[in-house]
């Protein structure tokens, strides 16, 4: 178990290394930092002097090592626009985004399992056909369109839900303010969560259905029938666990991907999270903030994947974590 953990952590570090290289390369190619620091009027000699002072004339490796060293100490540069450390800016926005992702994840898990299982057990039922039909449509509609349609119908036409912002949030700890402590907070997070979930939900319903149908064809399911086991036990004890094992691995990747999709959702709902912030940073060519965002999202991606892999190892008896580390 320990050896496996160490191995997984090393893999995670390797991925973070690649991400930092990409982020660093972007930093070097996005705009000229001097333009942000000094005006047009400064002479070429002063500019050169400044370049030397800032280390912009050092070799690529020296510059990268300095960048990585600073990053490891939590210094991802200072946002041009906010005049604050970029990491701090992101940390303030992070809770809003994570709560949105959490909301979407709960919706996805809560709906995809029952819908996927039902459509697998009763593939010919009319309800199943409707679910599968909607899921095809759902996959092909872009998130921002879903979001705008929902705002139009549920906020503008019916006025059931607010259309933008986080509403009443309650301070919990540090930068963390939560939507889940007030009714108003709940009302605000519902539409954005559904919009964000709408991309992955159809995918997961179809994935679970396909896996479940395959599992239901397996010898061990046929054997369970031959032993006189009741259908509900066959579906939910024999088949579901085998169905969800491969889904877990895909799920880990998708949760990471969802963080990236928050850019669209947050922008449409003006959700004050880091996705919305990222789009603004791009508009303002706030390079340190862009780079910091990429690194933080990359980090979240790597951490969720590592955790999901560990969970997979724990729930799958055929994976021996101790042996995998060896």
């Amino acid at each position: 178990m320990f050896a496996y953990l160490v191995k997984r952590v090393f893999q995670a570090i390797a991925v973070m290394f690649v991400i930092s290289l990409i982020a660093f390369a972007i930093q070097g190619n996005l705009g000229d930092p001097l333009r942000e620091l000094v005006g047009q009027s400064v002479s070429e000699e002063v500019r050169q002097q400044l370049r030397d002072d800032l280390g912009l004339n050092d070799s690529f490796i020296t510059q990268y090592l300095r960048f990585a060293g600073n990053a490891l100490q939590g210094d991802l540069g200072t946002s041009y626009f906010f005049k604050e450390p970029a990491l701090d800016v992101i940390m303030k926005k992070l809770p809003a985004t994570l709560e949105l992702v959490l909301g979407a994840t709960v919706i996805i898990i809560g709906l995809s399992i029952p819908l996927g299982v039902y459509t697998a057990i009763k593939p010919d039922a009319i309800v199943s056909r409707i679910i599968m039909g909607i899921s095809i449509v759902g996959i092909s509609i872009p998130v921002f369109l879903t979001a705008i349609l929902m705002i139009f119908v549920f906020s503008v036409e019916y006025g059931w839900f607010p259309s933008f912002g986080r509403g009443d949030v309650v301070h919990v700890w540090g930068y963390w303010e939560t939507n889940f402590a007030t009714a108003d907070g709940w009302m605000h997070i519902i539409l954005p969560s559904i919009a964000l979930a709408s991309i992955m939900l159809p995918l997961f319903v179809r994935l679970i259905r396909a896996e479940m149908m395959e599992v239901l064809q397996s010898e061990y399911v046929k054997y369970a029938v031959a032993k006189g086991i009741k259908p509900w036990r066959i579906y939910f004890v024999h088949a579901l666990k085998n169905t969800l094992l491969p889904v877990i691995t895909v799920g880990g990747v998708q949760i990471g991907t969802m963080v990236a999709y928050t850019i669209l959702t947050e922008t449409v709902f003006q959700w004050p999270g880091m996705g919305f912030m990222f789009l603004e940073a791009v508009n303002r060519v706030d390079t340190p903030l862009i780079v910091a965002y990429l690194i933080v999202v990359g980090f979240i991606f790597v951490v969720t994947n590592t955790i999901v892999d560990l969970i997979y190892g724990l729930v799958n008896p055929t994976v021996n974590l101790a042996r995998m580390g060896a």
């Binding site: 397996s218 010898e219 061990y220 054997y223 369970a224 004890v237 024999h238 666990k241 085998n242 094992l245 799958n316 008896p317 055929t318």
Partner: peptide, 9 residues
């Protein structure tokens, strides 16, 4: 090898 359910004892 495939008759018993792999995830149940």
């Amino acid at each position: 090898m495939v008759t018993l359910n792999p995830v149940l004892t």
